[in-house]
Design a protein around this nucleic acid. Structure first.
Lengths: 195, 195
DNA sequence: AGAGTAACCGAACGATCGGTCGGTTCAAGG
DNA sequence: CCTTGAACCGACCGATCGTTCGGTTACTCT
């Protein structure tokens, strides 16, 4: 059993600092100098823990993507009525987004300038399609209102959920993750579900 | 009457090129070299038309903000029932967002790294508050459902509307601006309005 | 105590950043 | 035709970018 040295950075703990700075300044707007100041170690020391700036980005968006894809593997997302599965996925998306807030925030802001960013965008599209198919299935069951296009509705619902990263702050106890998830489900489904 | 020389850049026509590149690569991820290549003139020539990179940003976000604030001055946004005024503002926000798509897109992505960006964020907050007060008034009238917090609902609705910039492409004729506006109003108000 | 090594540092690398400068091109107006 | 000035250019500026390197510190293990 290796006892960890005290007070020292691991790739993971360094990542949590870096992601905060990335979200505040933007990935491109963040220099390694910014990161070193925020971490309290020298610029060159960062390279002892990670291979460079892009590895930090890759680790961050991977964490977010893994958490999102895990939702689709949950039993409640795989079994039962499509509209029920959709509701579960929507609720869990909000919860995951809040639980992994800084990582998902960063994921939602990548623009595609580097190979890592383009890879992240591609995996995001995969996830979106998986959820869109759920909504399509619910529409085929006749469980959602037919007067709004499925494709359009999917995008608007994703927009509402993803926008949470723009204002939710866990430290300011305005609303818990569950309360936000309830509100989103209310708003989305009282608008979507047939009256 | 001064006849304009043909084929030459004005600050405005240069801006429309620059905003496209800003939106594709991100403001910080865009160098003057990128802009010059996209505009087809040399880097130094850009400085003949505008004072620098930040002026391009300022012009772009100003255009977006002016268009948004103009909505609040429209008669239908100032007179009548609060819930009616709110519906008008929501619909017009979608229309303005689509009409001025690249400029609003850039506005919604500023992070606050420069003075111009912080100024834009401040004006955005002002606008948000003006709309939030409309929703609050509609709630006081008893015209929106009481089981979702006004503050929370405002943010989620803004999130849905603003997310349009992430996927709407005018060239691909999927849905017209009016169709999108209709869908948003349907989704927002069939969830908001008391049954 | 001595060896091994994780953690860290300052200095410097070539590249690129936003921006400046002196000068050239070219079409309009007298 | 000749002057004028808008439009444009290549070369260059100091600063900063992400990254590398040689070396030092400090802790663990024997």
């Amino acid at each position: 059993m290796t006892t960890p040295r005290r007070d020292t950075y691991t790739p993971e703990s360094l990542l949590s600092v870096a992601v905060q700075v990335f979200n505040q300044r933007g990935y491109d707007g963040t220099s390694m100098e910014h990161l070193s100041r925020a971490a309290g170690i020298s610029k060159s020391s960062i390279y002892h823990h990670v291979s460079g700036k892009e590895e930090l980005l890759k680790r961050a968006v991977s964490r977010a993507l893994d958490a999102l894809f895990a939702i689709l593997e949950e039993p409640a997302a795989r079994e039962g009525q499509a509209v029920r599965r959709l509701e579960h996925v929507v609720r869990r998306m909000v919860e995951v987004l809040i639980a992994e807030l800084p990582y998902v925030t960063l994921l939602l802001r990548v623009r595609g300038n580097t190979a890592t960013e383009r890879w992240a965008l591609e995996r995001r599209r995969d996830f979106d399609h998986r959820v869109a198919e759920l909504l399509k299935a619910a529409a085929a069951d006749g469980d959602v209102r037919p007067d709004v296009e499925v494709r359009l509705a999917t995008r608007l619902v994703f927009g509402m959920i993803n926008s949470i990263v723009e204002w939710y702050r866990p430290e300011a106890r305005g609303a818990s993750g569950r309360e936000v998830a309830d509100a989103v489900v209310q708003l989305v489904f009282s608008g979507l579900r047939r009256a």
